[in-house]
Design a protein around this nucleic acid. Structure first.
Lengths: 202, 202
DNA sequence: GCAAACCGATTGACTGGTCAGTCAGCCAGC
DNA sequence: GCTGGCTGACTGACCAGTCAATCGGTTTGC
């Protein structure tokens, strides 16, 4: 082969993960056979089990890789000097950009984990919760600083904010609403505008 | 037996549907065996196939029964003389009450259909979309009437509104947030307050 | 009245097909 | 010639859906 020395092991592992994203996005986790992943990756069936304990572990790895980035992004926004509103906008922006950058991966994460209460959602509940909690903290600090009204529970606001964004992504995933670069750009500011300013005129 | 003439057929069918809700809610659709449904309903395995073409059809029936009520409720709200904001509040109220009244059924519908893009979501996409569209219409009419600002796309607002509510239900379903009668009552008004007034003080 | 034919509801053992995961060995590079 | 990444045929378990048989109530014929 062309590549001679660099550990091919890591390449193959990555190859399998990337292939899994494509196949999971196309067929969904449940109707994906391990053979489909191996085929898509161009490796032998058994190699999947060389790198991963099970089919589940492939999905777990995909989720954890990405979710940790999201958690880091939220915490970075929270730690910044920006206004609470700008912090929320940064979070929304990160999520939208994640989708723009790799829609298939985000589709898999949302459809198979985040929204799958009975299967993988259970497994990753604590990681998912951490995201909600961090967003709630941004809101609570905003209330403390007088930037947000105090009669809305921060946890509640956090769920609404995250729910609104995820529903947008779902709309794109389901192809219920158009998903052009322009829509992505709009979504970032509109989510924040809706949640912070409200639908009623000021 | 005590009951003599009334068709027991219909009872058994209902019995199977009700049992299916419980089992689906407990184990999820995918890890539910048809035998589990039959056992829970106290009927023979084969009877499930007497009343339903397949395991899928049981879930389809459960979804359609409930979703048609939701669509009717949204359209009734839309047709009323209330303010746009009150219409949204009525929709939120209906959904929250649905959960309060039968959390297991709502759990099944949300987890297995509404949020399952790759399986049943696909099948029922047009029914789901109809709900989003009806909510968008309420928003659009509100904009027309000057009650809502016009720089937020009605489809976008509809997704945010519905997403915020569904995320609340998900929080209850996942047991991430408390679900007392008081929380239900609060949620109804807070969703509308958040979406219509926004987080920032007026 | 009564029995026989009838018929839909009900039963549950069985089958065919599907896959996740195993494992015995191959071979490329050192 | 050894090591470990790599191969893919194989197996055991699982389960949706089938179907032949039974049950129990109703109708028909006399």
């Amino acid at each position: 082969m062309a590549s001679s020395k660099a550990a091919p092991a890591i390449d193959k592992r990555r190859q399998i993960l990337d292939a899994a994203v494509r196949v999971f996005a196309r067929q969904g986790f449940h109707s994906t056979r391990v053979a489909d992943i191996a085929d898509e990756a161009g490796v032998a069936y058994g190699l999947v089990y060389h790198y991963f304990k099970s089919k589940d572990e492939v999905l777990n790895e995909l989720f954890s890789e990405r979710w940790s980035l999201l958690l880091a992004a939220i915490e970075e926004a929270d730690g910044s000097e920006a206004t609470p509103r700008a912090k929320l906008e940064a979070v929304a922006g990160f999520i939208v950009d994640s989708y723009r950058h790799d829609p298939e991966l985000m589709k898999v994460i949302i459809v198979e984990v985040t929204r799958a209460a009975n299967s993988f959602g259970r497994t990753h509940l604590s990681e998912i919760r951490r995201a909600y909690d961090s967003i709630a903290k941004i809101v609570a600090d905003g209330q403390q600083a007088g930037a947000f009204r105090r009669d809305i529970d921060p946890t509640f606001a956090s769920m609404s904010f995250y729910g609104a964004i995820e529903q947008q992504l779902s709309g794109w995933i389901f192809e219920l609403i158009p998903a052009t670069d322009n829509d992505f750009a709009q979504a970032k500011s509109l989510v924040t505008a809706t949640i912070c300013d409200g639908l009623e005129p000021r």
